[in-house]
Write a protein that binds this DNA or RNA. Structure first.
Lengths: 326, 326
DNA sequence: CTGTTAGCGCTTTCAG
DNA sequence: CTGAAAGCGCTAACAG
């Protein structure tokens, strides 16, 4: 049943049906009722595709994500979805696994008018090849920002957060603070590593040790910590750039007979809910995950509505949550 | 730049451009090249909305989920997305928080032709009011299935899994086995509770104790276990219907001075990756999360392609993973 | 092998 | 306040 059938049924024109559908003012109450009755009668639902084609807006947002299985991402997506829903938008989720090919494919949805804009949360979206694909389409970088790109962003100050964390550990008399970092394709990895190095220098700690995890999972954290243990001198503290990595670090430490926090202090990053219920509870740097998502949507919609407004780079606060692991 | 511009540029008709775009056979190589050149020249990207309107298929799938933050859901979604991508489909994610209002709104996308079908993973989608909304549209119930509904489903045998678990605990000389269940709006809650009761009866255990968690989070697990402890006799084993609940149970148990597994055995459900890295590692009932997602997409596409094929109810195997928590 | 034409279902001027 | 008509960009008969 199309709008035409409804029009026929109500004895009016397509235009009038469209008017009541979109709540345009200036439709006489009784014709409005007639139309509404007809709509109800054949329980008509408008074809959204046709509407989108005609109005040239889909009210859909694309979200590019490396791995929804990572609780941090899931929480941000939840924020994105909540705000999108509140503003009458839907979200299209694309796992890119940071693979250029998949990213490029998804981005066809932008050019294809299937989505009105894109929020990226993954490493690869900053690659020169991809920025070209996105071109001038509305785009917000979330949690991972390349400042040289002309798109809005919502992030935290990763360098400051990492620096503060290492200083905090040093303040707790830890002298051999190791960093368990992630894939260096992420920009935040560089930023946090820079913060780590800066703090070591400031605190005049010469001991440094960095391991790179293959993914943001417990298993990768376990493997990374084991590698750390094979080095000449073992650390007395580990700063992991993700809570999941920290979970693995603690597991591997206990397994190796170390006590946490007595022998090894551990700090995570992200502040996922789970951290408070671990044994021991995990000290972590909390990112405003939900807010990161919410603001991303808000900036994206602003760009969609005012395409020529300049990019906005928003930096949200982080917070250290002190618990027993350190 | 529309298909018309390309046609003009290549000196052919729109139809021919469309043919090369869709790789239809029977286009002379040199005209094909001309078109391709033109497409390249103005880097034309087809308007997917227009195509979708015309062909009456969007190649998009709707996924209704209660909470992406729950790792079990996230893993299933990952499976859904992977298979969808492999088959040339995209997914639209809708958090429903099991709220009727939001579900109904999302389902407008079905009637509105924005999506070709829907996969539901939440409790509310079985409500009579909603099944009406979905009507005859292609629909697969994933992980949560109401057999009285005429839609395909992919699940595990929740009753058998729960029964087996309780028997296993009884076999380990546990005599006071408590169940930490979730929201009873979920059908699996009923099924697992039925399995729990059946096993108790079979094993001739008269002691039973059930607590209902408010959500599938660690915090809810902690609260539930605390309530359990306030009862006259404390359990010597807890079967939690979700790994996240189990994490909370263990946390609360250690906090109360109980040793796990000596004083309290704990078994979870779902088999999320994290469970292997907890302290102690968690015994759990593993659901084939990825496969649940993959098969859901496959059944949905089958239904989309053959609308009159009968519904298929697929039951996937589960697996007990024995670890130190029990 | 290629072009012409007729829509998909909707919104939106422009007249009346 | 309502209707007629044009057209969003594409695909698919049907001719030629």
């Amino acid at each position: 049943m199309s709008i035409e059938k409804v029009a026929l049924l109500a004895g009016v024109s397509k235009a009038t049906v469209s008017r009541v559908l979109n709540e345009h003012p200036g439709v006489r109450p009784d014709t409005r009722d007639k139309v509404l009755a007809a709509i109800n009668f054949c329980d008509y639902q408008p074809n959204l595709l046709a509407r989108q084609l005609r109005t040239a807006q889909s009210h859909m947002l694309l979200v590019l994500i490396s791995d929804i299985t990572n609780p941090f991402c899931a929480n941000v997506v939840q924020g994105i979805e909540a705000e999108a829903e509140a503003q009458g938008y839907h979200i299209l989720l694309c796992h890119t696994a940071s693979q250029m090919r998949r990213e490029a494919a998804s981005l066809g949805l932008l050019a294809g008018k299937v989505v009105d804009g894109v929020i990226t949360m993954d490493a690869a979206s900053c690659l020169p090849g991809l920025t070209e694909f996105i071109g001038d389409f509305p785009w917000v970088q979330c949690a991972e920002c390349d400042p040289s790109i002309n798109a809005s962003s919502v992030t935290i100050d990763n360098l400051a957060a990492a620096r503060d964390t290492v200083r905090y550990l040093a303040g707790k008399r830890r002298r051999r603070i190791a960093l368990v970092n992630s894939d260096m394709r992420y920009l935040y990895s560089h930023q946090r590593e820079a913060g780590y190095r800066a703090a070591l220098e400031e605190m005049e700690l010469s001991w440094a040790s960095i391991e790179y995890a293959e993914s943001l999972t417990c298993e990768a954290g376990i493997a990374a910590f084991r590698r750390l243990l094979q080095r000449p001198e073992r650390p007395d503290a580990v700063f992991a750039v993700s809570d999941m990595l920290a979970v693995g670090v603690i597991h591997a430490a206990l397994e190796a007979g170390l006590r946490v926090p007595e022998d090894l202090a551990v700090v995570g990053f992200d502040g996922i809910a789970l951290t408070g219920s671990l044994n021991p509870p995990l000290t972590t740097i909390e990112q405003p995950m939900h807010q990161l998502g919410v603001r991303s949507v808000q900036l994206l919609l602003k760009k969609i509505r005012q395409p020529h407004a300049p990019a906005i780079h928003e930096v949200l606060p982080w917070k250290r949550i002190e618990r027993a692991s350190c």
